[in-house]
Amino acid sequence: MARVLHNLIAWGLLVLLASLLMAPAAVMAGVNKPVLERGKGERCVEDTEFMRRNHMALLKHHRDDTMRRGIRTTKHSLKGCVDCHASSKTGSVAASKEDFCMACHVYTGVKLDCWDCHATKPMKQYRPAATPRVTPLMVQQQGGQQP
């Protein structure tokens, strides 16, 4: 009985180890590799191979330049990425799992928090909320009284 258990554990571990080794192999072999929709225009602002590895560094650098110094060049801006790479189906870079950003980020399991704040659709698709409610001018009593 103990021996059977022992064997079972040993085999289980072996299978686990093998699958662990296989996983990166599968990635390297390009199994289930995400298929990306081609962006608009002739070519990307940098080589595709370079962008694949360094887009995050470019974006971070540009983000600080724009945010803190007011530099508004478009070459490495996130808005630029969205303009070219928004999906023809969803109009967005992150609305579905096939969209440009999500396709790779789901595949590699890297969480993105850009889209908590940034729009995932190009500017030309942006419609301001139809009619923002007009602020009422009367005082709202919030369960309080004049002090």
């Binding site: 602020t135 009422p136 001018l137 009367m138 005082v139 709202q140 009593q141 919030q142 369960g143 309080g144 009284q145 004049q146 002090p147």
Partner: peptide, 26 residues
């Protein structure tokens, strides 16, 4: 925090952003 900020001393204040009223908290 419940006590409102006094932006204009000597004035009574009111707005849509709860200026001049005691702030409620539940």
């Amino acid at each position: 925090q419940a006590f409102p900020l006094d932006l204009f001393p000597g004035y009574a204040e009111s707005s849509s952003f709860f200026d001049g009223v005691v702030h409620g908290y539940t």
